[in-house]
Amino acid sequence: MSLLALDHVTVRFKPKGKPEVTALDDVSLRVAHDTFAVIVGPSGCGKSTLLRLVAGLETPTSGSMALDGQPIAGPSADRGMVFQSYTLFPWLSVRENVMFGPKLKGLPKAECEDIADDLIRAVGLSGFERSFPKELSGGMRQRVALARALANDPRILLMDEPFGALDSQTRQLMQELLLEVWQARRKTVLFITHDIDEAIFLGDAVHVMTARPGRIKRSLSIDIPRPRDLDALTSPDFMRYKREVLHLMHDEAVLAATPRREAIRLAS
């Protein structure tokens, strides 16, 4: 059985003084245990909304969502999330940030510190335990955010374009680091991005979303052997997947960029 199951999830909302928007339209999705699922789509396709639904930060207009058979209602520590924006708590040191979740659970301080230091080492930031977020670069902040989300040992790790604000070299390093950590700890991950290379490099499964209203257009299973390294990025298999996703995404980008009436004419 899948760990995460979304069935016929629809989200509609009405901005003040504007017509109703359908952000997600009848989305069904399965994410298997210990796999890395990636959702890729053009901006504004509702992929972030989808992740926020799973996190429990928003509620669907209709449809059902379950984690391990349990319906999802509200946020919880078993669904950790890494945001695109820098969300480290600036008044807490790196170690205190990572300890935040375990401390809320009421674990003894020594144990919280052990968990934190272990994860700080895993993301390669040993020596920065006492630093404050303002002293860290963007890439380092996202490493801490990853460690902080993992400190709760969540059943699923949700990542909302976590490397979107980083420069491309740092982004590549972070992807490799993420795979390394994921390989070592085996977590179920649901990762959102608009970067096709990132999606294929990271994912076991890549779900391509359509432009608003957001639907899942096609789901691909990525059979590139792990551990994946830089060379995977230029392998023939990778290129084949990239070509396929590129075409799927291009159609969507054209639709998204076309005025509404024109889009209807093209579609018919």
């Binding site: 996190a55 520590a77 945001f83 708590f89 979740g101 809320l104 989300a149 709760n152 949700l158």
Partner: peptide, 13 residues
């Protein structure tokens, strides 16, 4: 930032 608050919720607050 709303993200700061949402983030705390996902950490179990």
């Amino acid at each position: 930032s709303k993200d700061l608050i949402d983030c705390a919720y996902t950490l179990g607050a």
